[in-house]
Design a protein around this nucleic acid. Structure first.
Length: 491
RNA sequence: GGCGCGGUACCCAAAUGGGAAGGGAGCAGUCUGCAAAACUGCGAUGAGCCGGUUCGAUUCCGGCCCGCGCCUCCA
């Protein structure tokens, strides 16, 4: 089954055809390392992580490059404000980002190049553009001559005349045309600089990505990704830079993820309406954060609200609660044949069988994680239904079904990066998070539960219920098991 | 103003030219000492509005309204 992707370049869903059989080159714009990252950055990282994972699961040899921008205006500004050398600043936030990625179970890309390690490649690229009359020098800076590139606007589907008409670009006298953008910025006092044929200076923002992507992946390469907000001007300019030097195509498929909104507005640093990855993960657990990010198609906007996070938790709980039930079924010594008997077993066996197909169909269709999760829940319901009816006894079918489910779950885990925890670990994450946000000691809860158990043993149900009420008021939910023990979790 | 994306039940959210998955919330029930969880049942005769194409449209086309994003740094 072919994988189809929505290509921003053509604005259509297309079959993904790798340039080299069995291999995919993918470049995704990473972060500018000058501050901590928020949920919006997490979304981009997680979405492309899923794409990376899924392509690999389909046997493709993916070279995944995700860069770090470690020199730009914001970095310089922040460095001056904080009196921290820019190298130290960027190193610090790259490290923070890597912690965030680890937290969210994002795989490390094949390569994570930094802009400042590729100045020669950028200089070389700029030189070529000058040779091709696509760029010019002005006061030690080099600008791209946008009008010299006839395909300018083909990604963002803008045309130059209209851009100019509605231009909000501030007039810069050194540029020949307001639309032109800097490839190389002449040194200013106190700023980090590199030598170049045009004197000391530093690269513009866009050149690093076309330089690094083509350096590592060649030209053309298969997939270029990033947030929607990068379509213009960043990716548009990358195309101009890469394709301006010749007739070769830059990249076949541009994939863009939607933004994370908060109160129906884009989450962003400048609006100060962001939640950092660490904040959200501490409050809602990394697993649920990731689940939340995958509960919607990657191209659509996603609203961060307390309600939506709770819904995501409830949904995610549902899967881990099933897991908890299944853990009581002893694993089979040998993987016997299913031999389903009765309607429920047959229905479950069929559902398990169909699920792989449904999952694949959903994922093949532009990585539709929302639909894939939907399919999983259909099976979860049938599984619970079967378990309710089964009684406690261990049958070969129950063991077969468990093994089958675990194997499938592992496959979905590989692709999505969620649903891979032991249920006890998942709920332990919640106890930790709940204890923090609700300011309740886990030990205190457990002491209360012991008191209640004692009361119940003495048939003092009234006292037991009082304790439960007390705990419930603190957001602690109890679940009495048949064996007399009590499981608990934060609501 | 230009370009792009979207408007599906109380909320979130998929698919689809033949009449709408899934999750949450709600109500009723089964189970449980009581709960919780789970399960069962109920819930859009209609998909922003209006036209058109079609035997048939939520799905295609056109218009309108509304929201969001980009056009300046941005995942």
């Amino acid at each position: 089954m072919p994988i189809r992707v929505y290509n921003s370049l053509t604005q259509k869903k297309e079959t993904l055809k790798p340039l080299k059989k069995g291999k995919v080159g993918m470049y995704v714009c990473g972060i500018t390392a000058y501050d901590v990252c928020h949920l919006g950055h997490a979304r981009a990282a997680v979405n492309f992580d899923v794409i990376y994972r899924y392509l690999r699961q389909n046997g493709l040899d993916v070279t995944y490059v995700r860069n770090y921008t470690d020199i730009d205006d914001k970095i310089i500004k922040r460095s001056q404000e904080t009196k921290m050398p820019w190298q130290e600043l960027t190193q610090r936030y790259i490290a923070e980002y890597q912690e965030d990625m680890l937290l969210l179970n994002v795989l490390t890309p094949t390569l994570e190049p930094k802009a400042t390690d590729h100045i020669p490649q950028m200089v070389e690229g700029i030189q070529k553009l000058i040779e091709k009359k696509k760029a010019y020098e002005a006061n030690g800076s080099i600008y791209y001559s946008v009008r010299a590139f006839k395909d300018y606007g083909k990604l963002s589907h803008k045309n130059i005349e209209e851009l100019e008409a509605g231009s909000r670009v501030e007039i810069d006298e050194t540029k020949k045309d307001p639309l032109d953008f800097a490839l190389w910025k002449a040194a200013k006092p106190g700023e980090p600089t590199w030598d170049s044929p045009w004197g000391p200076g530093r690269p513009g923002w866009h050149i690093e990505c076309s330089a690094m992507s083509t350096h590592y992946l060649g030209m053309p390469f298969d997939i270029h990704g990033g947030g929607r907000d990068l379509i213009f001007p960043h990716h548009e300019n990358e195309i101009a830079q890469a394709e301006g030097t010749g007739s070769k195509k830059f990249c076949g498929y541009f994939l863009h993820n939607g933004h994370v909104n908060i109160n129906a507005e884009k989450m962003s640093k400048s609006l100060k309406n962001f939640k950092t990855i660490k904040e959200v993960a501490a409050e809602h657990t990394p697993e649920v954060v990731r689940f939340f990010l995958l509960s919607v198609h990657y191209g659509s906007p996603l609203d961060y609200t307390e309600k939506n996070m709770q819904d995501a938790k409830a949904a995610c709980d549902r899967i881990y609660l099933l897991e908890q039930r299944l853990e009581t079924i002893p694993p089979a010594k040998k993987a016997g044949p299913p031999q389903p008997k009765g309607e429920l077993e047959k229905a479950l066996a069929k559902s398990l069988k169909d699920l792989d197909k449904k999952f694949k169909t959903a994922m093949d269709d532009d990585f539709n994680t929302a639909a894939a999760l939907g399919a999983i829940f259909e099976t979860v319901r049938l599984y619970n239904k079967y378990l309710d009816a089964r009684g406690g006894e261990t049958t070969p079918f129950a063991q077969w079904a468990r093994e089958r489910w675990e194997a499938q779950r592992e496959c979905y885990h590989q692709a999505l990066g969620i649903l891979g925890l032991k249920s006890s670990d998942y709920f332990a994450q919640w106890k930790k998070a709940g204890a923090q946000t609700k300011k309740i000691e886990v030990a205190w809860v457990e002491k209360k539960i012991k008191e209640r158990e004692e009361a119940r043993r003495q048939k003092d149900f009234k006292k037991g219920d009082v304790i439960r009420g007390e705990l419930s008021g603190c957001g602690v939910e109890l679940k009495d098991r048949p064996d007399g023990t009590t499981e608990w979790h934060f609501r």
